[in-house]
Structure formats: C-alpha cells, structure tokens
C-alpha cells in the first residue's frame, strides 16, 4: 500500500503545469459563473419558492453539474491523464521500473479521483459563496444565512462516491486505448445517453444503474420517480462498482504486453 501511495504522490507531482489541473478548477468555476449569469439575468424580484437554499444548490447547481459538466469533466480528465503517458510513450518506461504495474495504474486512478474531489470541493464552496453573494444582490431569492454547508458537503460527497464507477470505467478505457478519441467518444456517448435517460419517464429504473446518471441519482430530490433508495443504489453501485472495475482494470493492465 505504501508503494501505491508513493506512486500516487508522483502522479500528483506530474500534474504541475498541466491542463488537467487547470480543467479541474476551471470547469466548476465556469459552471458557477453560468449559474450566476442565469439567475442575475432573470426578474430582479424573482423568488425561489419553498426551501431556497436546497432548490438553489440541488435543483440549480447540482442538476446542471451532474447532467453535463461532471461526465464531460471526468471524460476530459482521464483522457488528459492517460494522454500524458500515451503521448510520449511513457508506459514502456514506467513499466520497466521496479514498481508493480497495478500500483502505477492505481496511482493514475487515484490521481483522477483527486482531481474530481478538487472540482467537487470548488463546486461546493462556490455554491455556498455564490448563494451568499446572490443574497446580497438579490435578497428576494431568499438565500438568507446560514449557508447549509453540511448539506452541501453531503451532496458533493454523494456525487463523488456515485461517480467512482464512471471514473474507473473511463480510466480503464483511456489507459487501454492510446487514442484520445476513444475515451472521449465513450464519455460523450454516455453523457448523451444519460441525458436522454434523465429526462425520460424511465429515469427511476435505468438511471440507478447507468454510470453516467448515477451522480444525479445520488443527489436528486426525492420524488415519486426517484425514491430515497435511488440515492443509496447510486452511491453503493458507484463505490462498489468503481472498486470492482478498478481491480479488473489493474489486472488487465498488469497482464497485457506493452507494445507502444
């Protein structure tokens, strides 16, 4: 395990000056900017009915994030992380080191998870700060203090757990195929399918087990279509499935001949 942590530290060290690190910060900030622009462009006397903070964080922020930004972010991040090795044909060099291959693969996965956590942290903090700023600019919205930091933290944590299966799947695809187009194609196709599933009447059943839809299932408000179990199923499948796919990916990478 020490070897895995060491390899992960090296993986994070390699992120300096990379687009992958910049993207992890820019994507949530861009989403917050869009959200702010959208709200500020509406009627100045607009009121958010019922629980304003919950509606603002979940229905506005998390929904927009989960349905589009998150799956595309994960797709881009894993493609960039794997591309760092494919581009300069690093795998032959890395795998000729006295380090087990599964540790190098695991480190890549953990680095991708760390970038995801960073993005979610920026999103969570940003939503709290943006809500507070909007409360000053537009008091009618009802985003009065206190900021529900604990609920936000719970939400981003659930999204993190529910995204792990998608992260593990796309990491395996990105490491397995050297072309940037393959993980990008898989990621974008999945995002489009998830979009259809999420707005379809069958969202309650399929979205629970479709990796691209699971982050939204883990945080979406409880309704007739989305009972509370949807949260647990998405979270459980995300973490459990993510671990299983990570182990399978590490096994596959360990046994494969390195030709590139």
């Amino acid at each position: 395990m020490t070897g895995l942590l060491l390899a992960t530290r090296v993986e994070l060290f390699k992120l300096r000056r990379t687009l992958a690190l910049a993207v992890a910060l820019v994507v949530p900030l861009a989403l917050l900017a869009m959200l702010a622009a959208n709200i500020l462009s509406r009627d100045p006397n607009q009121v958010i009915p019922n629980s304003p903070w919950e509606t603002f964080v979940v229905n506005f922020g998390f929904f927009l994030w989960c349905i589009l930004a998150l799956p595309l972010l994960v797709t881009l991040e894993v493609a960039l992380l794997a591309g760092m090795e494919h581009g300069q044909r690093h795998w032959k060099d890395l795998f000729a080191l006295p380090v087990p291959r599964w540790q190098l693969y695991g480190a890549k996965l953990l680095a991708a998870a760390a970038l995801l956590a960073l993005s979610l942290l920026v999103l969570g903090l940003g939503l709290g700060v943006l809500g507070s700023v909007l409360n000053v600019l537009r008091p009618s919205l009802g985003l009065a203090p206190p900021v529900p930091w604990l609920d936000i933290l719970r939400g981003v944590s659930a999204m993190f757990g529910a995204t792990l299966l998608l992260l593990a799947l796309l990491t395996w695809v990105a490491v397995r195929w050297p072309s940037f187009a393959v993980p990008s194609g898989v990621g974008i196709t999945g995002t489009v399918v998830a979009l259809i599933l999420d707005i379809s009447a069958r969202a309650d059943s399929w979205a629970r087990i479709f990796p691209w839809s699971m982050p939204l299932s883990a945080v979406a408000p409880v309704s007739d279509n989305r009972p509370f179990e949807s949260h647990l199923i998405a979270l459980g499948l995300g973490v459990g499935g993510g671990l299983a796919v990570a182990v399978l990916g590490a096994w596959d990478v360990s046994r494969r001949d390195v030709l590139a």
């Binding site: 390699k14 300096r16 000056r17 990379t18 300069q88 890395l94």
Partner: peptide, 8 residues
C-alpha cells in the same frame, strides 16, 4: 525515444 514529460 526517451520518455520525458515536456511540461516538467
């Protein structure tokens, strides 16, 4: 070819 990270 040597495998080097150009951004480092």
């Amino acid at each position: 070819t040597p495998s080097l990270y150009p951004h480092l």
